[in-house]
Write a protein that binds this DNA or RNA. Structure first.
Lengths: 198, 198, 198, 198
DNA sequence: AATGAATGAGTGTTCATTCAT
DNA sequence: AATGAATGAACACTCATTCAT
């Protein structure tokens, strides 16, 4: 059998990396950077812990890579909100549902870890600062302005509205609600009243 | 010279315990139980790590003691909401402000740690279960029923309303918003719209 | 390069375990479970202390494993005494010599530690109880009865004879006599007189 | 009330010292020097651990003092054996009984600890060497020679006989036999057969 | 003389990371 | 590429000893 060519090797490498990152995201989100042991990631990914170090130089690097990817994805989601069909309020509702529904919780947890937890590498801290709220507000500003224009949502400083609203959504995601605990992720309708006032 | 008398010793003990618990609450809230090193607590309290163990048998015991105290305090706050003067909605606004304003963030974060983090002692887990959402809902039920009665808040299952609302508040506190980060703890007025619809 | 195959790994593991247990036996016997520091065992075995924990979950587990092995070996030795050739008294002499001669001192001291010292894990205590004197007496009973039958040893309760005799032997081994100290491990002949009366 | 005079103070001091030493002997004998915590001694003596340090500079000093006293007492006992009434073998039997019967076990255990355990101060080691077997042999030599002379005990190197016999006794004491364990401290008669051969 | 609060060196154990195979 | 043996820094906790009162 001929040895695999460069491209194939590269592809295998990328798949492995993807596999590891997926495993790591889950574990980091649930247990935080300190609570996550390299062994757990290896186990979740179904490989030996030694092999992790062929793909990522260190736990920190792995964490940073994840944060980086997460921030970019979040940014994408916000951009898409502007391009969706429907009235502004319908699009805001859709965005709300995407954030709440989606398998996005691990992602929010990860960002939260990066923002607040201890032992987070400086570079990860820098990343969440760089991409953070301010840029999300910018992305959503046209949408919210249009909504105010049409009287669909309350008046007032739109930047403040957006960051307040996103903060509420973030907070809910970060709660990491489990089924039997009494905490309640509200319906989009309930949350939208903060904006619509009706 | 005679040794210190009982009263003096008792006072020293109480002061020290208070001092340690205050330090520990801050550190646990920020860094979680695993991320918190006994040395950090000792440093924050300005004593040697050895002395911690004169007052608390272990890190776990210290953590449990804090959770216990926090849960009781939270319960008290909910009880008080029923006894405050004013219309129901005014009282709900007041409760909201107390939760958001107060130096309560470390406390909420502690509970959050106890609920979700790794390495939490079983007893602490049991405590948050025991005192959890369900009991808070019970405490607030009369207040919310009265508010619905007077048409001050929207209709619908009041237990659901309460747990949704408290979840939002919890989420916000857990975010542990720092000044320069763009996250925004909203005004009470903003949040109350979820309930009032106006 | 391929990783080591299963057989090679297994062999390394077994060798290492043996090496650690041998080192640990020496140190535990001499210094007791509390006096033995994991570092000492690691040093005696020529490995890092971290590696100990790849092979044994804890100091307690290591100690228990040793006690278990020792008890089984002792039991085996007693069983063999019945199967040896020669007259009963010759076999008792042989057993005596084996106990006194052999590199068995560390083993006796280990059992002694498990019986009497502080900080011994419950399971180790249970093991020495389970395998203790009573079972040794049972093993040796046929041999001593036969010896009494033939008039080779004194009459009287044979169980008592056996436990008295084994107690004397145990005591001597536990003394852990070093060369220059004046203590004297007697010849078998000297000790046998307790039984033979001549 | 007039303050106590010097003599009275001295006497109180001596009584306290005695009380501490008695407590310490028990604990050291049972748990060894490492297993014995200053707190345990203080508790056994019914005083605070702080007070121990008014009477003994350190744990080591306390241990050394005990060993010193024990060695002297042992020496006394041997001397007395020569002065007792009766035939030589009767006196040897009496000595055997004293050693086995007496509350002497803690004392033997202490010496054993000093000889073999770890963490024993050098001075204590020196003491047991100095007073050890050799001097006991000297003390008992006249008695054993007389016994051989009268044909009451077997012939052979009397020094060897003595040290063998004392070793057996020491070993038995060191076993620290508890009631339910199956070990058996033999009757003097049983042990004497090693010497008498009948 | 007497107490117990306070300190800090030392030990068991965990885990990120390296490396021989 | 892949494994798991091996290392050592870091942390929870204990305990001899000191010291203010």
């Amino acid at each position: 059998m001929a040895p695999l060519n460069d491209e194939q090797l590269h592809q295998i490498r990328d798949e492995r990396k993807e596999q590891i990152m997926k495993a790591a995201l889950n574990v980091f989100a649930r247990r935080g950077i300190i609570g996550t042991k390299m062994n757990m990631i290896a186990a979740e990914a179904g490989i030996s812990h030694g092999l992790l170090y062929h793909y990522f130089k260190s736990k920190d690097e792995l964490f940073i890579t994840l944060v980086e990817g997460a921030m970019i994805e979040a940014d994408d989601e916000m951009k898409k909100a502007n391009l969706m069909p429907g009235t502004p309020i319908e699009r805001i509702r859709k965005l709300t549902e995407i954030i709440l529904d989606e398998e996005g919780a691990p992602f929010f947890m990860l960002i939260h870890q990066a923002r607040t937890a201890d032992g987070v590498p400086d570079k990860a801290k820098a990343l969440v600062q760089q991409y953070s709220m301010k840029s999300f507000v910018e992305r959503l500003l046209p949408l919210f302005l249009e909504a105010q224009d049409k009287g669909e949502i309350v008046s007032g400083d739109p930047a403040m509205l957006i960051s307040s609203y996103l903060s509420v959504l973030s907070g809910l995601m970060v709660l990491n609600v489990q089924d039997d605990e009494g905490f309640q992720i509200p319906e989009a309708e309930f949350l939208l009243r903060m904006l619509t006032g009706r």
